[in-house]
Design a protein around this nucleic acid. Structure first.
Length: 467
RNA sequence: GGCGCCUUGGCGGAGUAGUCACGCAACGGUCUGCAAAACCGUGUACACGGGUGCAAAUCCCGUAGGCGCCUCCA
């Protein structure tokens, strides 16, 4: 399969280092709050990447990390981080907060029907590896120590600006934030921060440089290496990570190992709400609970996330979520046709194997073109509606639906057939209609509607669908 | 100030140098006992101005507007 590579700025074939296994690292959440739908859009798209890699015949070793030690609130911060701050506000320890939201996140992955990551490592469980990497960087002369911590000297890593195409001289360092004047370069970043002397932190560890906690970027470099080796196939994350987090990861990893860190970098763009980014200050951080409170299933959210391409800056609105819900209903109606077609051996030859390849797999293999896949599914759904119900090949349709579920995770094939009682009602109504007993026919129809089942009368039989 | 991206019909959103995206909504119709659903059809969609091509919404240049990043961020 092919994927756009931020590193080369081209769409490239994924060629695993050790085929058929693909090593994949995804920058996961910092567990200090409920993730918002912007976060989930991004994660859903990574899930589809993993599913698509598998559908292309590759296997995956997928690390999705959980950052449970806080990133600093800002560069100028005195050491208070998100987790510690969140803990103080809730009257708990940073450990409590991280455990709560960490559990929430893992549970949400199941609710959203994510494929299971092979590893969900926590930063606090890999402090030793992080210290080890900082030690290597120190031995190689990439670090220096100032008041508040051990820093990476980005001037020592010649390629520093390359990944994000940064123009370091022209960037207004400190345009919006004061930075520590002891830093040698504006882009230098902390590898290890010292605990403040006047304050007891919830999370702190001993290190060769003093008691403290890891910097904001080292965990990913250390955990990626620990689970997947020096060079990995694909590293994914949000588009915002390009200029800082991923740039710094590359600097750390490549300086310490002397090898390329990741062959392919995949970045998901952000979504906008009312043409604005999602942020705490705007108060537009919709959560999964908000979605469900309005009566939408998480499959609807997933479908909506796939209606735009992962590299485009797309929009979220309740109206478009509603549109996604209607679309999903029509897909589910298509899925329910497999219970109603009769395999009488008189199927019209529809080559489902070919359709699966051309409509689903090929667009996905071409840089995850999920909007085109959905358009193709809609086209097939429309075509099946004009087919005679008895001419639909059940096995082929089931395979088609299974492929959708395997790659997009929409759970279409999970719907169950209606029960025998309901089937009898439908049959009785059909017979009432045939004998023009409209009162009886309508009464039975009302009964079915009350049961959440709608009917579509065709020339030969009534086709049911879920309301 | 620097870097980058974007501008497609009422809304969302693919795609592409030469028949169709698709979804939602709207309108008209067919079918129907009535409905519903389904199907068919309709809407001069590609920001604006130039340029290159037989042909441009699609490539190039310019203009306008919008967005993102340069601070933690999905």
């Amino acid at each position: 399969m092919k994927l756009y590579n931020t590193l080369s700025k081209q769409i490239e074939e994924i060629v695993p280092i050790e085929a058929p296994s693909v090593t994949l690292y995804t920058c996961g959440p910092t567990v200090y709050d409920y993730p918002h739908i912007g976060n989930w859009f991004t994660f859903i798209r990574y899930d589809v990447l993993v599913r698509t890699l598998k559908a292309s015949g590759l296997s995956t070793r997928w690390v999705l990390n959980i950052t449970d030690v806080g990133h600093l609130v800002s560069d100028a911060d005195d050491g208070e981080d998100k987790l510690e701050k969140g803990a103080r506000m809730e009257g708990k320890t940073a450990w409590d907060v991280a455990a709560f939201y960490g559990t929430y996140f893992e549970d949400a992955l199941r609710r959203l029907n994510f494929s299971k990551p092979d590893f969900l490592p926590k930063a606090t469980e890999h402090i030793t590896e992080q210290i080890e990497m900082i030690r290597i960087l120190t031995d190689k002369g990439y670090t220096y120590v100032i008041d508040d911590g051990v820093y990476y000297d980005t001037a020592k890593f010649e390629r520093y600006a390359d990944f994000a195409c940064l123009d370091l001289d022209e960037q207004q360092a400190g345009a919006r934030v004061e930075f520590n004047p002891q830093k040698r370069n504006a882009t230098d970043f902390a590898l290890w921060k010292f605990s403040p002397t006047d304050q007891q932190r919830d999370m702190e560890w001993d290190s060769p440089w003093g008691k403290g906690f890891p910097g904001w970027h080292i965990e990913c470099s250390a955990m990626s290496r620990s689970y997947l080796g020096d060079t990995i196939d694909i590293h994914s994350g949000g588009i915002d990570h390009i200029p800082v987090h991923h740039t710094n990861e590359i600097a750390q990893s490549e300086a310490s190992t002397g090898k390329r860190f990741a062959n392919t970098w995949m970045h998901s763009n952000h979504i906008l709400i009312n043409d604005e980014k999602i942020s705490k200050s705007l108060g537009n951080g919709i959560t999964l609970e908000d979605i469900e409170a309005k009566g939408y299933s998480l499959e609807v959210l997933r479908l909506h996330a796939l209606e735009s391409h992962y590299r485009s800056q797309s929009k979220f609105s309740w109206d478009s979520l509603e549109a996604a819900q209607n679309r999903l209903k029509s897909y589910q109606a298509m899925a329910d046709l497999r219970f109603q077609a009769q395999e009488a051996g008189n199927e019209k030859p529809r080559d489902f194997d070919h359709v699966i390849r051309s409509d689903i797999l090929e667009p996905l293999f071409e840089d995850l073109n999920t909007p085109t896949v959905l358009a193709n599914i809609s086209n097939l759904e429309n075509a099946l509606n004009t087919d005679c119900i008895n001419s639909i090949e059940v096995a082929g349709l089931s395979k088609y639906l299974q492929t959708i579920d395997d790659t997009l995770g929409l759970r279409l094939i999970q719907s169950k057939d209606i029960n025998d009682e309901q089937k009898t009602l439908i049959q009785n109504r059909w017979e009432a209609r045939q004998s023009k007993d409209w009162a009886q026919s309508d009464a039975l129809r009302d009964q079915l509607v009350a049961d959440g089942i709608g009917l579509r009368d065709t020339q030969f039989k009534s086709i049911w669908y879920r309301l």
